[in-house]
């Protein structure tokens, strides 16, 4: 299961925070800070994994990827495949790229609701439901046409 998806910028400011199991606000803030501390210390061109046993307990993994000024972070457990999660991240970014045509940090900043809508089409309750970005784009466009 996917435990959470976080987008934050290279200053550590969260741009999207979605946990699939309820986390109190203080806990969310603390997790984001801890994750940011680890991420900003990592060099480029290294592996995309981070050990997060101390934050989330054993068996929970974290992959991240940098796109321009943004860190994309997926937190998940042993029911998911690490490399597949990286692919899914790619799907997520591609979808946003299609929805906002050449997505940049500002698009994510000013489209809080829409980014959540996109994510909800891809993941439901921590489970991957759609891996085709064109399908997601189709659904999101339909939704935005609804009044």
């Amino acid at each position: 299961m996917i435990r959470g998806v976080i987008i934050m910028n290279d200053q550590g400011k969260p741009r999207l925070v979605k946990f699939y199991e309820f986390q109190p606000m203080e806990k969310q803030q603390e997790l984001i800070r801890s994750i940011y501390r680890i991420l900003c210390s990592r060099a480029e061109n290294v592996s995309n994994f981070v050990k997060v046993d101390s934050l989330f307990g054993p068996d929970v993994r974290l992959v991240y990827k940098t796109y321009a000024t943004l860190y994309f972070v997926f937190i998940f457990d042993s029911s998911e495949n690490e490399l597949a999660m990286l692919d899914l991240m790619q799907v997520f970014v591609e979808t946003m790229d299609k929805c906002f045509s050449n997505v940049c940090e500002l698009d994510v900043v000013f489209n809080f609701n829409k980014v959540h809508t996109i994510l909800d089409e891809i993941i439901l309750g921590g489970q991957v439901l759609e891996t085709s970005s064109s399908q997601v784009v189709k659904a999101v466009e339909e939704i935005s046409r609804l009044s």
């Binding site: 400011k13 741009r15 925070v17 606000m25 809080f112």
Partner: peptide
């Protein structure tokens, strides 16, 4: 509500 949700989720604004 949308504004509140935004402030809550990304700026930990308020209970």
């Amino acid at each position: 509500l949308s504004k509140l949700t935004y402030l809550h989720s990304l700026h930990a604004a308020d209970d």
